[in-house]
Amino acid sequence: MLTDIWTVMRKELQEAFNLGDRVGKFGLLFMMFSFGILLPWQMGRSWVESPITLVYWSWVPLFLVNAVVADSFAGERERHTLETLLASRLPDQAILFGKLLAALAYGVGLTWASLLVGLVTINLFHGEGRLLFYPPAVALGVIGISLLSGGLAAGAGVLVSLRAKSVQQATQVLSIAIMALIFIPTFGLQALPAAWQERLWNIVSGWNVTQAVLVAIAVLAVLNSVLIGAAMRRFQRARLIAD
């Protein structure tokens, strides 16, 4: 089973890296530049010390995963390669998880690459002779949250891609979902009455970073398993052809 998953993953990554269009590659470079160089350089030491960057690291994988996952099934259907793949010996789960993990590896891999570049940047520009690194709780948060938020995007992305009529439609739905995920909490908070905002702030500032990270990880893990479960139920050969 693992061999089969790896076979699918390998080919998905091969296509994602070798063959992404120029717009995609430009977007990728822009992302890496912003989160690897520009933001760390501007924010200085708070880039590693403030837990606020956790929020960024939960967003970055969403965009990166989204860039490839929309194509996973909708692309194969659109380019008429899906049915041949389904006629092969591959078990359903190998196809599903191969595609899911490929999107995750791509998105989270590049996120972590930006993370490393960011660490290099900050140490180069703001190091002042000592090594700057995330405090343990933030480090755990950055790694855990980016991974799980990538998983969220991959799970949702596969589900949408399975149902979408075209790659374009899948991309649109997922982009809107990501925007909603980012903007609704951000603007929603601002729209709350001042008293509520204050009360919320009091609760949150009562938490220490470790607690907050653990809660976030737990919530994301639950969401991940729900989405993956849904994808497994949805992905059945006979249903894919008949619809």
Partner: peptide, 8 residues
């Protein structure tokens, strides 16, 4: 359909 990956 031939089911080939045209970009490969």
């Amino acid at each position: 359909h031939a089911g080939l990956y045209e970009r490969l």
